[in-house]
């Protein structure tokens, strides 16, 4: 699996990055959320974006998806500017975003159907992803019959079903209990190893950011901008043992120290 690791690193070195943000800023009326954000994500690379609540990391992800227009600068995917959601880009949502009236199978095939996948392939291709995320046997269940962790597995399968070249993760495990979250983190890493893509992963958990990312982009300030980009050179594939790696702790403490004063300031602001 060491070649997967080197492939992941090579993404940022190759010619055109798959995702590129160039001096991107976003305003809602008078409120400047973030400004002057520059980042690139290679074609086989996981970049995590971490920052305190309200720093605009989810807004940035929505801009990359094309759900929101940027106010300044430009976001490019494969060299062309993003103006609306495009094929090959799929998002996994914080609150799962499953359709409660659809079964797991119909939820997973939703994106495929919109992409015009022929009817006879729809089931097979969806079932393949349902198996991949470990939901086999639950394809005819409704979301309310599943636990939070299983619902997000379904959300992940729906995103993977369209064979995306860019995967956007919007705090996907934030609404899931701690033990299940850990399991899903390693599941996602396993799936990514099998099928590496360009992944932008937004989280407010520093630990998660360091565990999942090949690089960690730290957002800070009001309006926020990139405070630093941390290269994470942990051995691959990552798993439970990564959490006890000395370098993991070092990196986590480093990011934590950088964000702490900001978090403190935010806390006092509320008081």
């Amino acid at each position: 699996m060491s070649d997967a690791g080197s492939a992941a690193g090579s993404g940022s070195v190759e010619g055109t990055p798959r995702i590129a943000a160039k001096a991107v800023g976003k305003r809602f009326g008078d409120l400047q959320v973030f400004k002057d954000i520059n980042m690139t994500i290679g074609e086989r690379e996981i970049v995590t974006v971490v920052g305190p609540s309200g720093c605009g990391k989810t807004t940035l992800l929505r801009c990359v998806n094309g759900l929101l227009p940027v106010s300044e600068g430009e976001i490019q995917i494969e060299g062309t500017p993003v103006t609306r959601p495009r094929q090959g880009v799929a998002m996994v949502f914080q609150n799962f975003g499953l359709f409660p009236w659809k079964t797991v199978l119909s939820n997973v095939s939703y994106g495929l159907k919109l992409d015009g996948c022929p009817k006879e392939d729809l089931r097979d291709r969806s079932m393949e992803k349902i198996k991949l995320v470990g939901l086999e046997g639950f394809e005819n269940s409704y979301p309310y019959q599943l636990s939070g962790g299983m619902q997000q597995r379904c959300g992940l399968a729906r995103a993977l079903a369209v064979e995306p070249s860019v995967l956007l993760m919007d705090e996907p495990f934030a609404a899931i209990d701690a033990q299940t979250r850990e399991i899903l983190q390693f599941e996602l890493l396993r799936i990514w190893e099998m099928r590496p893509t360009s992944m932008m992963f937004v989280t407010h958990s520093i630990e998660e950011a360091v565990l999942m990312g090949h690089r960690v982009v730290v957002l800070k300030g009001r309006p926020s901008s990139v405070f630093e980009t941390v290269e994470v050179d942990l051995p691959e594939p990552r798993g439970r043992e990564t959490l006890s790696h000395p370098q993991f702790n070092e990196l986590r403490e480093h990011v934590w120290a950088n964000l702490m004063d900001e978090v403190r300031a935010a806390e006092f602001e509320v008081n």
Partner: peptide, 12 residues
């Protein structure tokens, strides 16, 4: 609105 956003994200 989140569900509408999901639909938009999948280019509905």
């Amino acid at each position: 609105p989140e569900l509408v956003e999901v639909a938009t994200s999948f280019r509905s």
